[in-house]
């Protein structure tokens, strides 16, 4: 057997092994509540005893703020009740023009503990993208407005490829 075919076989075995290793933890394909699309579980929990009444009345409980700060998360500034036992918490963004608070955490009551979840960034792009950027095509809004620096990098990559071909292949002319 040639060396290339042995190397190819080894790579196939390696990648198959990697696939079998990770397959139990991959989020299901097309799942609308996967961490990248909706909510990611932060594994912060607080006893529901006094906290539930505070959340129902719209106050921010100190126990939750403390638990969040221990993991380097920012404290919420406003609580809103969605359904019985689930609350949306907003944070103060600190951006210049859109000064209203943005939905960031979700507190769910499970058993007698309150679990903290966090919304994925995509939720803001989908819900507020049209209003903030006046552009119906969310893909364009994300790549040219929210993450414009990456697109600058990508355009530079295309430019670099063009120049590299000029450097290596052209033999006559000024450049």
């Amino acid at each position: 057997m040639k060396a290339e075919s042995i190397i190819g076989l080894l790579m196939v075995i390696l990648l198959t092994g990697l696939f079998f290793y990770i397959v139990e933890d991959v989020p299901p394909y097309g799942d609308p509540s996967s961490p990248a699309l909706q909510l990611v579980r932060l594994d912060i929990r607080v006893d529901a005893a006094g906290v539930e009444e505070e959340l129902n009345s719209g106050m921010i409980p100190a126990a939750l703020v403390e638990a969040l700060a221990a993991r380097n998360f920012v404290a919420p500034s406003e609580i809103e009740e969605v359904t019985a036992g689930e609350w949306d918490a907003k944070i103060d963004k600190g951006e210049f023009y859109y000064e209203e608070d943005e939905k960031y955490y979700r507190f769910k009551k499970e058993g007698n503990q309150i679990e903290v979840y966090r919304y994925a960034p995509v939720v803001r792009y989908l819900e507020k993208g049209l209003e903030e950027t006046d552009v119906p095509n969310i893909v364009t809004a994300v790549i040219v407005d929210y993450r414009a620096y990456d697109t600058l990098g990508e355009t530079t990559v295309i430019f670099t490829a063009g120049i590299s071909v000029i450097l290596l292949l052209r033999r006559r002319g000024k450049l």
Binding site: E131, E132, T133, D134, V135, T140, A141, V144, D145, A148, T151, T155, I158, F159, A161, G162, V165, I166, L169, R170
Partner: peptide, 29 residues
């Protein structure tokens, strides 16, 4: 908001020009 949309239009035109020039330069070479 319309300023943001117009800024995005400028940027898109810029990207279009560069991509066009690079592709033709590659093909010509």
């Amino acid at each position: 908001e319309m300023r943001r949309a117009m800024g995005m239009d400028f940027v898109e035109i810029g990207i279009g020009i560069t991509v066009m020039a690079t592709m033709t330069s590659l093909f010509f070479d």
